[in-house]
Design a protein around this nucleic acid. Structure first.
Length: 266
DNA sequence: ATTGCTTCCTGAGCGC
DNA sequence: TGCGCTCAGGAAGCAA
């Protein structure tokens, strides 16, 4: 389940192995995996110039003035192969480079997307995406302002990509445990000191997870197919008890599994 | 306008 | 052994 730290790890891994490579061919093993603009006319895909992240989106900038935007959703993986690896079981698309290397897009549940858009359409494409959770532009004051504009519980608030982009279910649970705030609390009732803790823990958890190269709970793998290690530091997600030894409550909020400690989180 | 529910999809895990 | 059921969850689309 790639969230911001997993996507950041993949972007860094990709930067190290595919920048400067020319895309020679794109082969779809599952039709419809890659979307193109109706007027897509590029006679070549071009060379990969830059790779960056926006929320959970991977943006691959090409010399052809197009962007290839990838979203892994739940089970998508990008695996780089220059050692003739075996095809993964759910290979949906292969990007072939000029040098025999290839980038494989594997995705069990087929929710992941790959889409070419004109470079100039980037802002329009992301108009529903809020400020990145690790953006330097987001201050405590800005965070509190965003909180005051929403009428929902704090967990749904953290998961809303149109407000703050990058958090998913695992990190939202972890941030709230470390902040000692119940996921059920309404945004309007969050105090200034609680907001400060949530804001700080959001940045800390994400940074720590990036240092661990992400959380490999189920499907997530790095570009070299290796796992991240932050799963070893989770405190509530998927746990029976919290680090203090209290029993973890499990319920659904917005249809998603929510883990929290009634004793530690108020 | 805003919020929240349903849907898309496949495989793992479970009870019987 | 295998069947049917539930669960996993990101975000578009739709309903209220």
């Amino acid at each position: 389940m790639p969230e911001l730290p997993e996507v950041e790890t993949i972007v860094r891994d990709l930067q190290a192995c595919v920048i400067g490579k020319e895309i020679k061919d794109i082969i779809e093993l599952r039709q419809g995996t890659v979307k193109y603009p109706a007027d897509f006319t590029a006679n070549s895909y071009g060379v990969i110039e830059e790779i960056r992240r926006r929320g959970k989106y991977i943006i691959i900038q090409l010399s052809s003035e197009y962007l290839l935007i990838v979203h892994l959703r739940m089970t998508g993986k990008l695996i780089y192969d220059d050692i003739k690896r075996e095809d993964p079981k759910h290979l949906r698309c292969v990007i072939k480079f000029g040098d025999d290397g290839r980038l494989m897009f594997d995705d069990v549940r087929t929710f992941g997307t790959m889409e070419f858009i004109p470079a100039g359409d980037e802002d329009t494409y992301f108009k529903r995406i809020g400020i990145d959770a690790l953006s330097e532009q987001i201050t405590l004051e800005k965070f509190k302002e965003l909180l005051s504009k929403k009428r929902t519980n704090i967990k749904n608030f953290l998961l809303d990509q149109s407000v703050i982009a990058g958090l998913g279910n695992i990190y939202a649970n972890e941030i709230l445990y470390r902040s000692k705030v119940s996921p059920l609390r309404q945004t309007a009732k969050i105090t200034a000191s609680e907001a400060k803790r949530i804001f700080k823990e959001m940045q800390l958890v994400l940074q720590e997870a990036i240092e661990c190269n992400g959380t490999s709970i189920s499907d997530y793998r790095r570009v070299d197919d290796k796992q991240g290690t932050f799963q070893n530091f989770l405190r509530v997600y998927g746990k029976e008890s919290c680090p203090q030894g209290h029993e973890i409550e499990r319920l659904k909020i917005g249809g998603r599994s929510t883990f929290y400690c009634k004793t530690c989180q108020k």
